[in-house]
Design a protein around this nucleic acid. Structure first.
Lengths: 220, 220, 220, 220
DNA sequence: GATGAATGAGGGTTCATTCAT
DNA sequence: TATGAATGAACCCTCATTCAT
């Protein structure tokens, strides 16, 4: 079918680049449509290869998905953990740096869609959920808990239940990402990150700090 | 089952009860598996009718889903709006009453699963998302914005961007519901609502109030 | 496609007859092509239904196959076992009756193809093989061993290892069925059952009997 | 593997050895899984070459299969025919020698799996079946018929229909090979060749010989 | 009103074969 | 000669929807 001189393209070997192209296409579609609703046909097509090719690089849909997460989430997470470990200054600044960095590195990119996706499909694909929880969620949680504990230990934050507080302060960040991937994507009142983040830091730091005067006037 | 002499009576009641039974079954399954992954076969089976019967009451899967939302979300929302309108006391108490009431009325029930569900499937079923946004989300948002504005007007809350603050303070409530519907349901670190809600109110009210002294010591 | 007034046929309900029609179609195709190579599409088409319909009656390919065996093999086996149990006369006659009856009931029909099929695919579908072995093979073996033991006990057959002898005497019957299903079906020297069976009984009974004079001249 | 200084020599030998290695791998896998279920990927992998290389030596799967048969079946067949032609002694001894030799040369090796395989897949690959029939089966049949005719001519065997008798006496040998390749391989009542062959020769020779006294007591 | 048999398009996955390198 | 990336047709199975009864 379709005998054309460009057919030779078909045999172009791109072993090096293929996995990256497939992962990029998969990220796009998983985030757009969810895990179950993404057809591997479409992933392959978007990467410009046939469906069979996909199976040369990934054993199945789940492995492809795990690879997407590994590729996109883990580097940013490594960085964030480094920042926390090496931080010297006050806790409020660290908190701000981490949250704003998160937004830069994850929130602004398609990767932010993964949170929604995981939450959405965890019921039907428990193995995927477990993988994400172990590789990503638990590390994020640990990192934030340690920030809060550090702040309390230094007398900067009020003494609170750090485990619960971690969940409370994480929630608005996750929701920001999820909202813009769901309703926002359908152009229903998308959140403007700038003022949202400012207000978030204002309220949360005001809520955490022992001396709220510090952040009583929004920064920037 | 349950052979009784009043069989005719029972059948009459049944005829009217059908949609309710279907809606209950649909809520269960939609929340458990998501919109796309729920099979109408199973909904019908759980309601004790045949698959065809389902189509007598609902034109298709989407209409069934909308009916589930109408049935389960709107009454609680009506009540909450009433409470806000009729409230006389201080803003922090109202805030607490609304949030704890939300948890009682929605969070503790299966209905809480709908948030996750909507967010999850909004990409693939935009009409469903739009319906939910218009019928539910926008009303919830309006209600909370008005609570915050009222508190600021009364000089109880610090002056802040109420639209953004609304999103920030809603996020932990929504996340609580979603978490326990996704990871929590897979027994991965489920959140215990009691202490979570206490910490949430502590941090958020501390962050909102002009005189944080009021809630500096956690209640209860 | 094919808009015709007979389309209403599509909705003809045949719940009673369907399974039989599907089993008949499945027997044909399994025997013709083997288990793995039989497409359920084709089974459905031959039964005059769509692919989906097949799944209303059989959970999957393996279950369909098991049903084919149950439907076609077990009744004949029940009968044969009855004949053996109730037999009164001499052992050679019983042996002849069973073997010729086997040929009538199984060998002449498509069912005879199942032996080949099972042997062929046992490696790739062990569960199927096990099912067949337990439901069919072991019963056939038991029946023939008991015939041989009976003959020896009555002093008609020479004393031999009945387990091994059973296998030896069964082999030509199974091969007759298998040959005509494989090479014979490709019109390569098909076996003519009549003279084959006569020669088989001649040689085997001659080999088994204590007084070979009895069957020294071929019958018929 | 095996780094040795004579690398060039090794490569030359290797080049010639390739088809042999491929044929050995193919025999293993065809016998284990059947024709259709054997993946050329696996054949190549087991031979330690790439899939593409396979196509340098064999035009396609069928040709590979034919080559496997030629390589493995024909030499043993040549030998057997020689033995028959040169035999001088009595027919029963020749019969025994041929059958036990068959078992040594074919039955004990993987080659025995080919019978099952051919019978199994003849329906779907008629050309393969025809090839096997012409190259192997018809020659085996001719050889055995001539043995029987010789025995009858010498007055050792009873006069019988040699064509049918040939099939009858071949059947238990073929079944022995097939059984241990199918059910036996799944550890369902595998046949012990020793006593099986003894009983086989006992019954069949008893059935064929004019003076059954000769073999009335099992040998060995 | 109620049923449930029937449909058929569609998705994940496999594998013989091709051919640029 | 040897490679192995790429293809694409096929197959099993699912499920929303239809409609004769």
């Amino acid at each position: 079918m379709m005998q054309c001189p460009l057919k030779s393209k078909r045999w172009e070997r791109r072993k090096e680049a293929r996995p990256q192209e497939l992962l990029a296409a998969a990220l796009d579609l998983f985030v757009e449509r969810g895990f179950a609703a993404t057809r591997l046909d479409d992933v392959a097509a978007r990467a410009g290869v046939s469906k069979g090719t996909l199976y040369l690089y990934f054993a199945n849909k789940e492995e492809l998905f795990k690879a997407v997460i590994r590729e996109n989430m883990l580097p940013a997470l490594d960085e964030a953990e480094d920042i926390v470990k090496q931080h010297k200054g006050d806790s409020a600044s660290l908190f701000e740096e981490i949250m704003l960095g998160w937004w830069e590195r994850i929130g602004l990119t398609k990767v932010s869609g993964i949170s929604k996706l995981i939450m959405a499909e965890s019921g039907n694909f428990p193995e995927v959920a477990r993988f994400y929880y172990e590789e990503v969620t638990s590390r994020v949680h640990g990192m934030i808990v340690s920030m809060l504990e550090h702040g309390i230990a230094r007398g900067e934050f009020r003494p609170i239940d750090t485990k619960e507080a971690m969940r409370v302060v994480v929630a608005p960040m996750v929701m920001l990402m999820m909202w813009n991937q769901s309703f926002g994507a359908c152009s229903m009142e998308p959140i403007s990150p700038q003022s949202y983040l400012r207000t978030y830091l204002d309220i949360v730091l005001h809520g955490l700090l022992r001396e709220p005067a510090v952040s009583s006037s929004p920064r920037k």
